[in-house]
């Protein structure tokens, strides 16, 4: 049972962080299909820091550096989307898709290059961080980590930023009615950049949390297994609102963790379902959720439409 709770919390943190990232981007008016790629890059940034940082550093400092590295990697990668979608008016779906493929391909290339440089007979795309990971846990032996705390803090912060600050008001105006925002002197381009960058920050962090969830090495060839898209489903299910996103993430996190721990439950075991059923479960649930919640979508009205100053 405790295993289920800890996995649920880890996966909830991941989905919530990434979905919040998507939420910021979409509120600014840019559809971020590329979250998956951003996660991979965030994970890569974090993993590399975990690999090279001396394990002897104080735990808290180690944690902070890893988090910053993941966020920075996510932000840098998200700029690919920002430049293409905002300045070059590219098809956001196409660019996002390219970023997902590029994320996995580039991360694999980087990790393999590092591994073969160290040892020519090791052309694998795996990074290990067994020792480093211990810094993140706050009870030895259990998978409760500081990321969960950070995720809650960021959830609260996101809610405040979106609904209580000048920045949030302006950001949402850009996603709903950029012409209106422009007419009152708001720089739509800057706000959209801000939205995408925040999604890079949160998505990158989410990637790091994901690869430390219950494992202590990661094979980058596998990317993040569609988690970025699950996060998009969470975002839609959560109606683009942080608090609801948190609840949606909890639900999805629960189903996702079942595939890791279902063997520990007598009654699930007795059902004798193949393990693939549990693997599929989160995706099937998302489809059902999308079917139920897409019809009356609360999506920002101007999302996905490049802003052209000329069209008023």
């Amino acid at each position: 049972m405790i295993l289920l709770i800890q996995y649920t919390l880890v996966f909830t943190s991941v989905l919530m962080l990434v979905a919040l990232g998507g939420c910021f981007s979409e509120h600014s008016g840019v559809i971020n299909i590329g979250l998956e790629g951003i996660m991979v890059f965030g994970a890569l940034g974090g993993a590399l820091v975990m690999k090279y940082l001396p394990v002897g550093l104080p735990g808290f400092l180690f944690f902070i550096i890893c988090v910053c590295a993941a966020m920075l990697a996510g932000i840098l990668y998200s700029l690919l989307l920002a430049v293409a979608a905002i300045d070059f008016k590219a098809d956001q779906t196409l660019v996002g898709t390219a970023m997902n493929l590029l994320g996995t391909a580039a991360a694999t290339v980087i990790v393999k290059a590092i591994n073969t440089a160290e040892n020519p007979n090791n052309p694998s795309s795996t990074i290990q961080y067994i020792a480093a990971k211990k810094h993140f846990l706050f009870v030895d032996g259990y998978e409760f980590n500081w990321f969960m705390v950070l995720a809650v803090i960021l959830l609260i912060l996101s809610t405040v930023i979106l609904y209580r600050t000048r920045f949030g008001l302006r950001l949402m105006a850009c996603g709903e009615h950029p012409q209106a925002a422009d007419s009152v002197g708001i720089n739509v381009r800057k706000m959209r950049y801000a939205g995408v960058i925040i999604s890079g920050l949160l998505g990158g962090l989410g990637g790091l949390v994901y690869i430390t969830a219950g494992v202590s090495e990661w094979k980058f060839e596998n990317g993040v297994a569609g988690f970025g898209f699950l996060a998009l489903a969470v975002m839609i299910f959560g109606g683009w609102k942080p608090t609801k996103i948190a609840l949606a993430a909890l639900l999805f996190g629960l189903f996702r963790s079942l595939s890791n721990v279902y063997t520990g439950f007598g009654f699930l075991n007795s059902l004798n379902l193949p393990s693939t059923v549990y693997n599929m479960l989160p995706y099937i649930i998302s489809l059902i959720v999308l079917v139920l919640f897409s019809a009356n979508s609360a999506a920002p009205k101007a999302e996905g439409i490049p802003y052209d100053k000329g069209s008023r």
Binding site: I33, G226, F229, L232, A233, S286, L287, L290, S294
Partner: peptide, 11 residues
């Protein structure tokens, strides 16, 4: 059902 085809396709 107005489900975004990109997300449903990925799932």
């Amino acid at each position: 059902r107005n489900v975004n085809e990109v997300i449903s396709c990925i799932m």
